[in-house]
Amino acid sequence: MEKQKVDLSLLDGVLTEYASVKGSLITILQHTQDIYGYLPKEAIELISEKTGIATSEIMGVGTFYTQFRFEPVGKYLIMLCQGTACHVNSSELILQTIKDELHIEDGQTTEDGLFSLKCVACLGCCSLSPVMMINDDTYGSLTPDKTKKILKELREAAV
């Protein structure tokens, strides 16, 4: 997927509010990811400049936590729950279905930039397991057929 040019002025508000507040690095990174969908290299450099925290340390923190991404994601980010209840209720079958349908592995994005797949820790909707979240919507009690249908509908909605 083509990376778009990063508009650093979008960070002004966040940096004005948090750059000098100690202990705010994770909060700044979360806001940055909300803005760009990932943590662009240029943004990390600017954060380093404004906070005085070395880029190496920012990368250390960013790579430690699973929430942060360093590549843009697709229009639909599929977060497939890997919790215990989902495991017991065959989330493996759902993972296989998504891989087969989209031809991507965990952590990858489809060539058309539509879907990204990420396996995540428990989403806390265990009673509906197996579960996935796509952007802000949660889909529960998944079966391979239901999963295929959801992906098909999203693909059609995006056209």
Partner: peptide, 23 residues
């Protein structure tokens, strides 16, 4: 403070490190 996805942060001293913006 919103966590950023690390199971170990349930451990109280790791949680404090995370609150302070560290790994």
């Amino acid at each position: 403070k919103a966590g950023a996805g690390a199971f170990v942060c349930g451990e109280e001293t790791a949680l404090i490190e995370s609150l302070e913006g560290h790994r």
